[in-house]
Structures are given as structure tokens and as C-alpha cells.
Design a protein around this nucleic acid. Sequence first.
DNA 1: TTTTAATATTGCAATATTACGATAAATATA
DNA 2: TATATTTATCGTAATATTGCAATATTAAAA
Lengths: 109, 109
Amino acid sequence: MGASKTDFFTDKQNGIATLTKALGHPARIAIIEYLVKVDTCICGDIVNELPLAQPTISQHLKELKNAGLIKGNVEGNAICYCIDEKAISKLQDYFANISAKLQKKNMCC
Amino acid sequence: MGASKTDFFTDKQNGIATLTKALGHPARIAIIEYLVKVDTCICGDIVNELPLAQPTISQHLKELKNAGLIKGNVEGNAICYCIDEKAISKLQDYFANISAKLQKKNMCC
DNA sequence: TTTTAATATTGCAATATTACGATAAATATA
DNA sequence: TATATTTATCGTAATATTGCAATATTAAAA
């Protein structure tokens, strides 16, 4: 095998898993944090920020974009990538909701 | 290759990536949601909840446990798994922090 | 002690991910 | 137009993940 059985889970579950999976690599976390840090969205120099080759960064950016975590605008011959706030909000809400539900329970362990 | 270059990233980045990676599969999201839903922590019947074989569930549980998202207590010949609230809090805080920082910026795209 | 029940581990096949060199594509600049 | 710059894609090797059948382990119950 090797392929996830996504058909058997709800759209919401698959949606959250898509977002968390995309963030499940330190390089992609680092890219998100870099995008948060810089004021402008000119992101061509992520390559200089991370110890990875340009094709590898490009691939990571593609995965973040496919998952909906970042957006990309062509800006001359460079590309302006930036965070899609909606995706972050979705994750924030998701974990806040779980936290709230856990507060109401007395866990056994 | 195939192995992530974890050495080049910060502990915090690797820590978040470990948590999100563990959640990056719909079955593991479903397990977490099941653990949130049930009042008691008697979790032996996760196998009946999901369309996956017992060894597969056991493997997913192991990954969630290794990442620190769930804890497991031996309870007779069954095992009581439950969510580790600290891990969820960590994720909630992380995304809340990013959201807050994004509010203060005017994104270009 | 034998049996039963609940989980974990092993071994394996199919597939996915990670990383990068080489190269292509697209656009700006000289 | 030729060249430089930026980013994407292709091809490939190494490794990781997913899933399950078979089997082992562990502890309760008979």
C-alpha cells in the first residue's frame, strides 16, 4: 500500500489532515514562519534563508500552496508568496475547539 | 534522499512539525476526534470506529503517542489512550500567535 | 493451567516523500 | 535580440509511510 484511505473519512477530517500534513515538515514550518516575519511578501529569498536547494524549496512551496496555506502572485519575474490567513484560522479554530471540549472532561490519564 | 534535514531547523520548528506531521493523516485526525468525543478514555474500540485493520490502528496510535499527542495507560489487558492536552495547547497557541501577527500586517496578496 | 481478549510487533508490498542536479520556462534588463 | 534572473519541472536515488496478514505478547478469566 502506501496510499491513505481518504475515501473513508469525512471531508472535514481530510481537510484538516491536508493542512497538518503540509505543515508536517520543519522546512515548511520555517517557510511559514519566514512569511510571518517579513513585512513584505517578496519571498524570492526564502532560498537564502533555508539550507535547502532551490528546487527543494520550490517543491515545499508547491505543497504549501496545494494545501491552501499560502498564495502566490506573479510579480514581474519574481513570485510573491504569502500566507492564506483563512487556513491558519481554520487550524486555530480547530485546536481551540478541541481544547474547549477537553476542558469539560475529566480525563482518566 | 527521503530523510528530512531536521538538524538544520530549530527545536521549536521540529517540535511543531512533529505534532503536525502526526496529525497529517485522516485516520489519526479521526482517532483524536474519537478521543475527544467519548467521555471515558477506554479506547479499545477505536478499531470498531475506523475502517482499518487492528495492526494499522495500533501503528497510528503509536505514532500519535510518539509525537506526544496521546498518552496510554495499561488498564488490565486493555489500554487506555487519551489526548495529551499539552500538545493540543501547544498547537493552539502556535496558530493563535501566527494569526495575531498576521492581523498586524497588510498582506500584499 | 488453559483459554480468551486486547494490543503490539514483524514482515512485506505498494506508494509517497525528500532532496537535488540538470534543465526548462518566463520575464526583466542591457 | 542576447543575457541575466527567478522560479518551475523533470528525472532519479534514498528513505519513509501506509496497510494488512500472520504472529507474538500480555493479562484477565475460566
